[in-house]
């Protein structure tokens, strides 16, 4: 290194160190931020249940409409098979009540018909259709996931 460089090289060195300093501080901050996000992102509560055993299919005769409160759903035995409608309102998530001709949400007044289609109210989408499967042994399983 030529020591007789003069003021120009001194400036370059100072700038370089400043850049290096800002770089390491920036890197430290980034590392810290990533760590913080991972730290805060941890979920301690166990994930909610998404599979529900409903019992033997014979418990639900054709044409029946059975509420399944623990899954927040209603089970239908249609001619084509078993389906379920989710009682979680598609508007903002309140639990919908069953009424005479269909469903009514107590929170903001959405109304649905017996098939879950929107009749009225702030909700734009119909009630969610949930999958129901039958095991070889004739047991019904409801999937809310």
């Amino acid at each position: 290194m030529n020591k007789k460089q003069g003021p120009v090289s001194k400036l370059h060195r100072r700038d370089f160190i400043m850049v290096a300093l800002k770089g390491t501080l920036g890197l430290s901050s980034t590392l810290g931020l990533i760590g913080l996000i991972r730290f805060l992102g941890y979920q301690s509560d166990p994930a909610p249940q998404t599979e529900f055993e409903l019992g033997p299919a014979s418990n639900f005769p054709p044409g029946s409409r059975t509420p399944v409160p623990e899954a927040q759903a209603v089970l239908y035995h249609m001619p084509a098979g078993f389906i379920a409608l989710s009682l979680v309102c598609p508007h903002l998530g309140c639990v919908i009540n069953s009424v005479e001709q269909g469903y009514a949400c107590p929170c903001h007044g959405s109304r649905f018909d017996a098939q879950g289609q929107v009749l009225n109210g702030p909700a734009r989408e119909p009630m969610r259709v949930l999958r129901v499967e039958q095991t070889p042994g004739g047991q019904l399983i409801l999937y809310t996931g």
Partner: peptide, 16 residues
């Protein structure tokens, strides 16, 4: 048990 959660399960919980 929440201290154990911090110490073993939360990412960087042990560090904090």
């Amino acid at each position: 048990e929440s201290v154990q959660t911090l110490a073993f399960l939360v990412p960087y919980g042990w560090l904090v």
